[in-house]
Design a protein around this nucleic acid. Sequence first.
DNA 1: AATAAAATTTAGATTAGTCTAAAAATTAGT
DNA 2: ACTAATTTTTAGACTAATCTAAATTTTATT
Lengths: 219, 219
Amino acid sequence: MNSLTEENYLKAIYKLVDGEKVAVTTNAIAEKMNTKAASVTDMLKKLSDKKLINYEKYYGVKLTAKGEKIALNIIRKHRLWEMFLVEKLEFGWDEVHDLAEQLEHINSEKLVAQIDKFLNYPKVDPHGDPIPDSNGKLQIQKSALLSTFKKNEVCMMTGVVDHSPTFLQYLAKTELTLGSTIKINDINDFDRSLQITAGKAKPFFISNEVAKNILVSLK
Amino acid sequence: MNSLTEENYLKAIYKLVDGEKVAVTTNAIAEKMNTKAASVTDMLKKLSDKKLINYEKYYGVKLTAKGEKIALNIIRKHRLWEMFLVEKLEFGWDEVHDLAEQLEHINSEKLVAQIDKFLNYPKVDPHGDPIPDSNGKLQIQKSALLSTFKKNEVCMMTGVVDHSPTFLQYLAKTELTLGSTIKINDINDFDRSLQITAGKAKPFFISNEVAKNILVSLK
DNA sequence: AATAAAATTTAGATTAGTCTAAAAATTAGT
DNA sequence: ACTAATTTTTAGACTAATCTAAATTTTATT
Ligand SMILES: [Mn+2]
Ligand SMILES: [Mn+2]
Ligand SMILES: [Mn+2]
Ligand SMILES: [Mn+2]
């Protein structure tokens, strides 16, 4: 139905829109897809012909309902596969993304349904990102950055901003995992670094840079 | 490294060789791949340049050691995925092949290793076909057609010749599953149809056509 | 409002994989 | 050993996705 490339463009556009109602620019797509603007323009025409996006020259693009549904389905598959790899095949949360980029294009309704069932219908992926349901509905979780919290406040880790293997590997060496209860013991006035307690471990330090990449829920 | 199309050509050539040492013809490949001979010739040149096959104009092709290794790895992945779908995701043995045709091209050594482990290192796939090990070694099982057995002989079902969903669905409705013990009660002299007992079920009839598509081991 | 800068589109090529039609080589039939 | 039939290869064209370079449109700056 849609080529792998078309699917990736739709996903990229979806992620660039990110809830906002603004149109996505050609250059933004080119950067995200690691291609040139000229290539993007060609593809936009094709997606527009297929009624998956609304495209107006020089203005930018928006996904149609049809296009958004496809994008959400790809994201659903991506996150379910990541969950499967971590939960069932002993992968680390830092090594599943690229593989899921391949698996998300496997075309089988039944496969997705069975993986979902096998995992007992997870709501979020290994990085705390919500998994769209089979109708493309996405549970939006309100979360805040750990860096915005104050001394003595307590919260729970629900996700990460940076998804890079480097960051994820760093976190894996601490007590900071999804669901961890975090207490902020102290904040350094000079560099905004934090002394925190996570789970049952000894208190330890994290930089403000790290705190800005950890999502937590108010608790 | 190799495109999906190249992988499929290598697999097709491997299957056409089928143990024999003869060269595979252009037309045979074209038929198996559902393409035209002209397209095959183009691809043969490419695979030859990559040293994956030995190709001589008008003569035919053979896989090099390198090409055969790739083909066997694709087959390994195909059969492991089929096993996974049947054993873990409640798929029927008649509905896994096409999906495995997609999954066999997913590129991740670790994924294959982990699926293999998860399935506890199966030796055969859901159709009784042997699964090559990670070095490309393939356990060859000697088996015979049920149609070659005589009255009162007993054997065990180890595989099928025809892999079509229609045939597999038919078998699924009988007691004829991999591992079934089969006793031949009687053979009809006119049409070579058999009256057999499989497992603990009541005796029943199968045509010679069916018997010619069931692989059994001498027991 | 005019001009400079930036963003976007168009034009023209390229590569992988495919096709049809024609040419060349091989194999089969007498 | 010829000729006919079959198989295989070549030639030339097409589509999807990409690129570079040039043209066009929009936005920003004076
Ligand atoms: Mn991911
Ligand atoms: Mn994720
Ligand atoms: Mn199969
Ligand atoms: Mn099989």
